[in-house]
Amino acid sequence: MVKGKIKLLKEALRSSGDIQTLDYPSGDPRLDYSQPRFGSGAKYSHICEGLRGAPQYSEEDCCGCAACESVCTANTIKTEDVNGKRVFTIDLGRCVFCGRCEEECPEDAIKLTSKFELAYTGPGSQNPANVRFERDLILCEKCGNPVAPVKQYKIYSEKVLKNLGEKWREQSREDIEKAGKLCRECRRRNAYTLNLHTRKYY
């Protein structure tokens, strides 16, 4: 009966000496986190490394492949191909900060930062941090449909060529240039004109 009471009072006394309240929103948010201390005056950082906070987009690095769109959990990232441009709209109000885009981005153009104070005041639900940017698209020579973003085409054609052997490189370069200007449908139709079409060797 008494033991618990004493424990309770002891804990109350200990707690009153061991205040763990952060000075948020003042004070330094990046205090040393490595050593949690339970003594008086101990303060904890409220940012841990690896926190998945606001995503940061690098327009420069983005190649426009839209891999992020296809994996995005909450449809935060959306693309639309209009007038020869691929328009990326990123609505942060929908983001669930899962970090799948960061995982899948081939160019590391998306990073989740540790920024978490994202509160904004209206008017409207449009987050001022929402991102909207465009990538140029290659349009099909024949039908005018979009083929791929210019940058993605450039990066990946080079990557493909780099991985090919000496023997095929020149021929492939020609092929890629030829095929790269055509959309998927037109490419299928023109497949036989390529240098490296498999049927040619049967």
Partner: peptide, 20 residues
């Protein structure tokens, strides 16, 4: 609505920030 606090869920600090 006056203040929007994005996050899934927002951290408690972000909530306090929103309240202020």
């Amino acid at each position: 609505v006056d203040v929007y606090v994005p996050g899934c869920p927002p951290k408690p600090e972000a909530i306090i920030d929103g309240i202020i």
